[in-house]
Amino acid sequence: MRELIKMVVILTILSSFSGGILAYVKDVTEKDIDMQRLKFEKAPAIKEILANATNDPLKDRFVVMDGKKKVSVFVGKVDEKFNFITFEAQGKGFGGDMGVMIGVNLEEDKIIGIGVTTHSETPGIGSKAKTDKAFKAQFVDMALVEKFSVKDDGGAVDTISGATVTSKGVCIALNQASALYKRIKPEILKKINELPK
């Protein structure tokens, strides 16, 4: 009996110490990790989508609450107006979750560009979603209210050959994005007005 109690006590102490240390380190590194993610994963997609912006979208960013979830919105200034925004949505690809950055024209509610950020798709096949220009370009000027689906499912989106699941994943992300956009648009407009001109 005493041995059993000893085992339980030691395991409990060990686990709680471990948990405590990790929680502390996570707290300390969280900011740096966010910055690194921004720099290496999101920044390239944002810069590509907002290539014409005259400001720095990485600086002009704010957080909008969607229920309890935080959504980072990056704003691009074109023709002296903060008209273009990008934000990220999640889709499910072949290798798991993938992040898709979506650029929207606020006045017309139209897509100005998309870019894949984080993914674990097969290199050379599904990973083309990140690099294939034709695949990404087809989304430009589509309204962000419609339902996106690939041609196999009766939709309008051309798949990347050999990567149907990945292409569907992008559609999932876009559908999620359009629902999200509808919910947070008023908030976005309000925040943009608060930005320094």
């Binding site: 471990s18 240390i21 990790l22 590194t29 990790i33 690194q36 290496f40």
Partner: peptide, 21 residues
């Protein structure tokens, strides 16, 4: 395993924060 897993998670967090590539 608890001890090892703690340090591995620590390394993972530190690498994410400072050597992301």
């Amino acid at each position: 395993i608890i001890i090892i897993a703690t340090f591995v998670t620590l390394v993972e967090l530190l690498m994410q924060a400072y050597t992301y590539e």
